[in-house]
C-alpha cells in the first residue's frame, strides 16, 4: 500500500519534556516498601559489608602501610581509605539496584508495563525507582558511617556530611545504571557491568592518592566515583574548599543525564 508515506512514528508528545512529567513517583517507592517490608534482614546485612571492609583495612593494610601524605598533610592509611570505601559501597548498591533489579522488572516481570496502564507516567517510574535506590543507599551509608565511627575510623564530626554526598553519588549511579540497563538485551549483557565497575572501584583514587596516577590523573577525574570519594574524604577530614562544588556539579549533571535518558528510553520501549 502507501508505504512511501513520510510520517515517521515519532510519538506526538514532546519527548525532551518527558522527565518533567512526574506527578507521583513516590508510588513506586511505596511499592518497593511493600516488597521489602518482610525482608528487613537484607537491611541488617547491610552492616556486615562495611564491617568486613573496614576491619580488613584497619587491622590489615592500615598496620602494614602506616601513615601517608596527601596534599602535604599526613594521615593514617585507614583514615584515607575508609571514606573511599564508603563512597564505593554507595556506588555498588546503586549499581546493583538499578541494573539487575530494574532489568527483572523491565523485561521479566513486566512490572512497568502494568504500572504504565495506570495514570503513572514513565517519568514517575524512572524517578520513583531511582529514588528507591537512593533511599536504600541512604540506609547503607548510615550503616557504614556508624561502623566507621564504632571502629574509631572517623576523623572529624563533619563526616555526617558524607551521607548526603553518598546519596548524591548513589543518585548519579542509579540514574546512569538504569539508563544503561534500558539498552541491555539479555542477562548475558550484565557481564559487562563488572568490567566497568571494578576499574572504577580500583582506580578512582580509592586506594592511593590522585598524585600517584601522574599524567593519567585526568582519566581518573572522569570517574564519577572519584568525585564521590573526594567529597566523602573532604567530609571526613573536615576540609572545605570551593573545589568541592565542582565534584557536586559533576555528579548532578550525570544524574540529570541518566534520568532524562531513562525516562525517554522507557517511553520508546514500553509505549510503542
Amino acid at each position: 500500500m502507501n508505504v512511501a508515506a513520510p510520517s515517521r512514528d515519532v510519538p506526538l508528545r514532546i519527548v525532551p519534556l518527558g522527565m518533567f512529567d512526574a506527578r507521583r513517583p513516590q508510588r513506586m517507592v511505596e511499592r518497593s516498601l511493600y516488597v521489602h517490608r518482610r525482608s528487613w534482614m537484607v537491611i541488617v546485612s547491610g552492616f556486615f559489608e562495611p564491617l568486613f571492609y573496614l576491619l580488613s583495612i584497619r587491622v590489615g593494610f592500615g598496620a602494614l602501610i602506616g601513615d601517608i601524605t596527601v596534599d602535604g598533610r599526613t594521615i593514617g592509611y585507614a583514615e584515607f581509605v575508609a571514606p573511599a570505601l564508603m563512597a564505593a559501597a554507595a556506588m555498588n548498591g546503586a549499581i546493583y539496584d538499578s541494573t539487575m533489579n530494574v532489568f527483572y522488572k523491565l523485561k521479566v516481570s513486566k512490572l512497568y508495563d502494568s504500572v504504565l496502564a495506570t495514570p503513572m507516567s514513565t517519568a514517575d517510574v524512572a524517578l520513583g525507582e531511582i529514588a528507591w535506590a537512593m533511599l536504600r543507599g541512604l540506609l547503607y551509608s548510615v550503616a557504614f558511617l556508624l561502623t566507621m565511627w564504632a571502629l574509631g575510623m572517623t576523623a572529624s564530626p563533619w563526616i555526617v556530611l558524607a551521607i548526603p554526598a553518598c546519596v548524591l553519588l548513589g543518585f548519579a549511579f542509579a540514574a546512569v545504571g538504569m539508563a544503561v540497563t534500558s539498552y541491555m538485551r539479555s542477562w548475558a549483557d550484565f557481564e559487562y557491568v563488572p568490567a566497568v565497575q571494578v576499574p572504577l572501584f580500583l582506580f578512582s583514587a580509592t586506594f592511593f592518592p590522585l598524585e600517584q596516577y601522574g599524567s593519567w590523573s585526568w582519566i581518573v577525574q572522569l570517574s564519577p566515583l572519584y568525585h564521590g570519594v573526594a567529597l566523602v574524604r573532604a567530609a571526613n577530614l573536615g576540609e572545605w574548599s570551593w573545589g568541592l562544588l565542582g565534584h557536586v556539579a559533576f555528579l548532578l549533571v550525570l544524574a540529570a543525564i541518566g534520568l532524562a535518558v531513562t525516562a525517554r528510553r522507557l517511553r520508546t520501549m514500553l509505549l510503542t
Binding site: R24, R27, E30, R31, Y34, T118, M120
Partner: peptide, 9 residues
C-alpha cells in the same frame, strides 16, 4: 490490588 490502587492515588 492495594499497590495497584495506589498508582491511581
Amino acid at each position: 490490588l492495594v499497590v495497584y490502587g495506589r498508582y491511581f492515588d
